[in-house]
Computed example of a mutant assay.
Amino acid sequence: MISQQTLTMTLRQVLLTLLSIGMAFPFFWMVSSALKTNDEIWSFPPSLWPSDPLWHNFTDAWAAAPFTQYIFNSIFVATIIVLLQMLNSGMMAYALTHMKFRLQAGFTTAILIGYMIPATATYLPSYLILNELGLLNSYAGLIFSNCVSVFSIFLIRQAFLQVSHELVEAGQVDGASHLRILWTIIVPITRSSFAVLALITFIEQYNNYFWPMLITNDPSLQLVSAGLRSFFVEGGAYGLKWPLIMAASAMTIAPLLVLFIFTQKTIIHSVNLSAGATKG
């Protein structure tokens, strides 16, 4: 007779398997559609896999638009933004949690209030500031306008609050500076939060669409989202070249899938290290 524990575990595994299939199916359908003809895509009932896969659709889509430039722009801009946000978020969170200074509560309150302000409400003043600085239509404008994030500060601050202040005091007794305490004690303990921050920020900036379109008009500075739109509409592919559109979409998503696979392992490993450090 099957025990209750075995039955529960089996049902849980079945449920997780179904959820995994449901989450992976859209990407499978996108790749499958990229290998079909227009007639096969719109046929009913739809087929899961084409009878004669057209692998050249991927090379045709890659040659039809400068996707190499689009992907490079997105990866370059997102990577620099991730590094800058991790740097300034770590220093700001440390100041708010393990340093004492005037108006500390006021700064914390301001950050919490800023977290509730929609990003679109800052577009107009941010645009005017970038215009005055001469940073419109440039990599510098794309990067510096996103190098500080209230969400990032809030996330790292919450992680730093879990670190005992006694560790900071022990470092100060040993004569360590605040920067050394931050990067040699606090950051290694909270590395899982930084890994999560890096993943979330990279995906957000890689897929960023509206703000980059607002401050840039040079096609060579377009990110993948804007590049896909240009290919979809301006390239004459609207409603006509769905296999190429699906192929282009699959190629631009591939870097995110690779990043998620590697970051997932890093996050799990970091969580285990953080738990061990906390117990110790």
Results as ranks from 00 to 15, higher is better:
95 A>P: 05
251 M>I: 09
194 F>P: 05
197 L>M: 14
159 A>G: 00
152 S>Y: 03
164 S>E: 15
122 T>S: 12
180 R>I: 11
89 S>W: 11
211 W>K: 02
61 A>Q: 09
269 H>W: 07
235 G>F: 07
133 L>E: 11
53 P>T: 09
111 I>H: 03
23 M>C: 13
214 L>I: 15
203 I>K: 00
168 V>Y: 02
218 D>F: 09
160 F>L: 12
19 L>M: 13
226 A>T: 04
248 A>L: 06
217 N>I: 04
217 N>F: 14
256 L>Y: 03
263 T>F: 10
79 T>Q: 08
152 S>K: 07
230 S>D: 14
131 N>Y: 10
240 L>A: 14
97 T>P: 05
63 A>S: 15
26 P>H: 02
185 I>Y: 00
194 F>T: 04
231 F>N: 05
146 N>H: 08
228 L>M: 12
173 V>P: 03
92 M>Y: 01
63 A>G: 07
274 S>V: 01
263 T>Q: 06
70 Y>A: 06
93 A>W: 09
208 N>G: 11
237 A>G: 00
93 A>G: 13
133 L>M: 14
272 N>Q: 15
80 I>N: 04
127 Y>M: 10
87 L>N: 05
144 F>A: 02
131 N>H: 13
67 F>L: 11
239 G>F: 01
64 A>M: 06
36 K>W: 11
20 S>G: 15
202 F>K: 08
67 F>W: 14
16 L>N: 00
121 A>E: 01
247 A>T: 04
203 I>Y: 06
83 L>S: 10
45 P>G: 10
210 F>L: 14
160 F>E: 14
175 G>I: 05
